[in-house]
Design a protein around this nucleic acid. Structure first.
Lengths: 147, 147
DNA sequence: CAACTATTTTGAAGCGATCAAAAGTAGGCT
DNA sequence: AGCCTACTTTTGATCGCTTCAAAATAGTTG
């Protein structure tokens, strides 16, 4: 079986299920997200250009925004860096962000059920989501190839 | 005693202790941060204008940046919103951010020692800091005064 | 296939933050 | 006290990312 990643037919279904029209830009964007998790709009745009030449950058933003609204894609926005997007939305995982190069990696929450994600005093807030970000230096930034 | 908030003399000491020169813009910025926690550079600028007329916006950014580098101030950057700054740096607390109005509140970590702040697999990262943000709707955004 | 509406495109503007160089000033030293 | 030097402020411009707006295009339903 080769269905390790959703194939186009599945992507099309996802888009349709979200109540959105299936268009070339949207398919291209969603496909790009499968192969490159945690990418910026810019990088996605480059990838989309290859799959659907002539697609406008604005359409990439549109598609991403629509997907986020529809819950198909998650938007993460590390401080001081452009937005990044990922297709992994089902589970509640967190992110390691490199303060040097901006590289992002997924981390599953150690405790599964996220114990500290329910603050004692929510100050009248209706909490919708808890986000955990770990800041540090990634392996390659710590160990640049010595020349 | 009226020393509920650090007074100017203390602020001056803090700045000096950080190895920075004491200037009017810096004092004004640090003072503004005492009274208005979680404010954006813009808001701080407005406050500073009153205390030290003629101060440039750039100087506010400079001062804030220097303070952050020196560890006197913490920079928080909620997704989709301008940077905010707070003078509370000693303890490890987290933030509630209103998705509607952007209002930020402090929350102390329930468990004190932040159990989920040590991911099982750090993927080669040298983790410097863990940041927890709760997203939701604040009380006033949930309950707008019924007209 | 026609019509309606969502979506894409194009071009531009907006915003917050940052850069760069010149003018000014705090703090140490004599 | 006054000078000197390095650090800060100021001024003005610029930059990158994202969003806005209106016209053109294309997907979907009946």
């Amino acid at each position: 079986m080769t269905d390790t990643l959703p194939i186009d037919a599945d992507l099309e279904k996802s888009i349709r299920a979200a109540g959105l029209r299936v268009t070339a830009p949207r398919l291209a964007v969603l496909t790009a997200l499968q192969s490159h998790p945690h990418t910026s709009a810019d990088t996605i745009y480059a990838d989309v250009e290859a799959r659907a030449p002539g697609t406008a950058l604005q359409s990439v933003y549109n598609a991403l925004s629509d997907f986020v609204d529809a819950g198909l894609v998650r938007r993460i926005q590390p401080a001081g860096q452009p937005m990044r997007f990922e297709a992994r939305v089902a589970d509640n995982h967190h992110h390691l962000v490199c303060t040097s190069c901006g590289h992002v990696e997924d981390v599953d929450c150690v405790t599964g059920e996220a114990p500290c994600l329910h603050p004692a005093d929510s100050r009248g807030f209706a909490i919708a989501e808890a986000e955990v970000t770990f800041w540090g230096m990634c392996a390659s930034c710590r160990n640049p190839a010595v020349s």
